[in-house]
C-alpha cells in the first residue's frame, strides 16, 4: 500500500519499488489521504475532464468576450488559421495552444473551468492533454491517467515551493501548470516516470524567472498568451524527454531554484499590477478604461 511522498526522488523510488507509473502512485496516495474509494476519486476526475473539454469546445467555437472586454476570440482566431492554412509550428502544436487559450478566455468571461493548478493557468493542462489525446486517438481513460500524473507534479511543486503568482511570479503559476502538463504527456505517450520528471524539470527551466504582471490586475492579459506559450513549452519539453534528453539539474532542485527565484522577484512583479506590462503607458490606459481614472494603488 502506497502512502505518501514529499518530493520527486521519493516519488521515483516509490514507482520503482512498486513497479508503478506516477499516475498509479498518485491515485493510491489519494485513497490513503482522503479515505475515499478509488471509484469515487476516478469519478470526480472524469467530471473534471468533462468540464475541461466543454471549456475548450466553447472557447474554440464561440465568440467569447471577457468581463472587461480586454480579451476573447483569439482561440477561435488561431483555430481558423490552423484549419485553413499551412502553419509554421504545425497543426498539432497550434491546436494545443489554441485549446489552452480557449480555456483561459472562457475563464475570463465567467465561464466554468477547473483550476489547474490555478484559474490563471487553467488552460495549459487541459489544452495539452486533451488535444494530444485527440491527435493520438487515446481513450479518455488515458487522459484521466495523464491528469493524475500531472497532479503528482503539481502537488510536489505546491508542497515544496508555490504555484501562486503573488508568491512566485508567473514562473510558479503557468510554470507549474506547464510542468504538470509535460509530465502528463510523457506518461500518456508511454514514457517512464524518470522521463516524466525530466520533462517537468525542463519545462520549468525554460521559463525560470517569468514575472506576473497582469494588466489592470485582471486574469486576462498577458495570461491568455502565457497559457499559449505554456502549452508549447510542455509539448517541446515532453518531446525532449521522450527522446531521452535529460535535465542536467534534477527536478527537485529545479523546483527549489524556482522557489528561490520567486522569492527574489520584487513585489511589483508578483501579481500586484504595479510593474512590467501593467505599468506600461498602454497598460495604465487600459486600467483607467476598465476601472475609471482613480489612481491605481
Amino acid at each position: 500500500m502506497i502512502k505518501d511522498f514529499v518530493n520527486g526522488s521519493d516519488l521515483l523510488s516509490l514507482c520503482h519499488k512498486e513497479e508503478k507509473k506516477i499516475w498509479e502512485v498518485m491515485i493510491e496516495r489519494e485513497i490513503y489521504i482522503s479515505g475515499k474509494s478509488k471509484d469515487e476519486i476516478m469519478e470526480y476526475m472524469w467530471g473534471n475532464l468533462k468540464i475541461m473539454k466543454n471549456a475548450i469546445e466553447k472557447g474554440l467555437q464561440e465568440d467569447i468576450k471577457s468581463v472587461s472586454g480586454l480579451v476573447g476570440g483569439d482561440a477561435k482566431r488561431l483555430r481558423t488559421y490552423y484549419e485553413t492554412k499551412k502553419t509554421l509550428s504545425g497543426e498539432q502544436m497550434n491546436k494545443a495552444v489554441a485549446s489552452a487559450m480557449a480555456v483561459l478566455e472562457v475563464n475570463a468571461s465567467m465561464g466554468q473551468i477547473v483550476a489547474a493548478p490555478t484559474a490563471g493557468s487553467s488552460g495549459i493542462l487541459p489544452g495539452v492533454l486533451i488535444s494530444a489525446g485527440q491527435d493520438f486517438g487515446f481513450d479518455d481513460e488515458v487522459i484521466v491517467q495523464g491528469l493524475f500524473t500531472a497532479a503528482a507534479v503539481g502537488y510536489i511543486i505546491t508542497r515544496n515551493a508555490t504555484v501562486a503568482g503573488a508568491e512566485g511570479g508567473c514562473q510558479a503559476e503557468t510554470g507549474a501548470a506547464a510542468a504538470m502538463a509535460a509530465a502528463g504527456l510523457v506518461e500518456m505517450m508511454g514514457g517512464t516516470p524518470e522521463q516524466a520528471l525530466h520533462g517537468a524539470a525542463m519545462t520549468i527551466k525554460n521559463i525560470l524567472g517569468l514575472v506576473c504582471d497582469p494588466i489592470a490586475g485582471l486574469v486576462e492579459a498577458p495570461c491568455v498568451k502565457r497559457n499559449a506559450i505554456g502549452a508549447a513549452n510542455a509539448y517541446i519539453s515532453a518531446d525532449m524527454a521522450l527522446a531521452g534528453i535529460q535535465s542536467i539539474i534534477p527536478f527537485d532542485e529545479v523546483v527549489d531554484a524556482m522557489y528561490k527565484v520567486g522569492q527574489s522577484i520584487p513585489c511589483s512583479l508578483r501579481e500586484t499590477a504595479l510593474g512590467g506590462l501593467a505599468a506600461t503607458p498602454t497598460g495604465k490606459k487600459i486600467y483607467e478604461k476598465v476601472f475609471g481614472s482613480k489612481e491605481q494603488k
Partner: peptide, 25 residues
C-alpha cells in the same frame, strides 16, 4: 503543519472564472 494536499486541491476546484480569490471566494 504541512497541509495534506488532495489531488483535487491541485486539479480543482471547479469554478466559474476569472479569479479564485476575487470570484470563487
Amino acid at each position: 503543519q504541512v497541509k495534506n494536499y488532495s489531488v483535487f486541491d491541485i486539479i480543482g476546484p471547479r469554478m466559474i472564472g476569472p479569479s479564485s480569490s476575487h470570484t470563487a471566494g
